[in-house]
Design a protein around this nucleic acid. Structure first.
Lengths: 69, 69
DNA sequence: CCATTATGTCAAGTATATTTTACACATATC
DNA sequence: GATATGTGTAAAATATACTTGACATAATGG
């Protein structure tokens, strides 16, 4: 899995540190970091919380096109 | 959490049983059932696999505008 | 009837998401 | 040159997603 640069960019656009975003969605800083680094596979509820905090939708941050074939 | 009727409807529109959908996304039938029943909180990768199979996006099946925090 | 399919539920186990604690490095401020 | 913030990483522990196996109900067809 590659990095989630859309998440990193959306967070930067809101001028939030990983820790600040983590606090707002009630997870640890390491969890946010791991998601941005593509180290794993968060739950959809956490994704939704992140998206709401950043003013984005699931598709904008977590949907990846073209996986067929 | 309420039931995910959008998932149920999208699955019905493709004429797939819970088991058939489960097989296509490589999870157990109980997992699909639990997601439809709103019993829990799947990973975003599983959500994406389900959406791809059903020809939908994350927003169409798993995004909720209003949510309790 | 009897067998099969589809769904809902439960309990116990396994896999993994997430936390806690901690260390390393870089930048900026005092 | 100590202190603080922001990021990347890792190991061990905890919470929970997901599996396996089972049982119940209803619908369908032989």
């Amino acid at each position: 899995m590659g990095k989630n640069l859309r998440l990193k960019a959306a967070r930067a656009a809101m001028d939030l540190s990983q820790k600040q975003l983590a606090d707002r969605v009630n997870v640890s800083r390491q969890t946010i970091n791991a998601i941005e680094m593509g180290d794993y596979n968060p739950t959809v509820r956490l994704c939704a919380a992140i998206c709401r905090t950043l003013g984005k939708t699931l598709d904008e941050i977590f949907w990846e096109d073209a996986q067929e074939g």
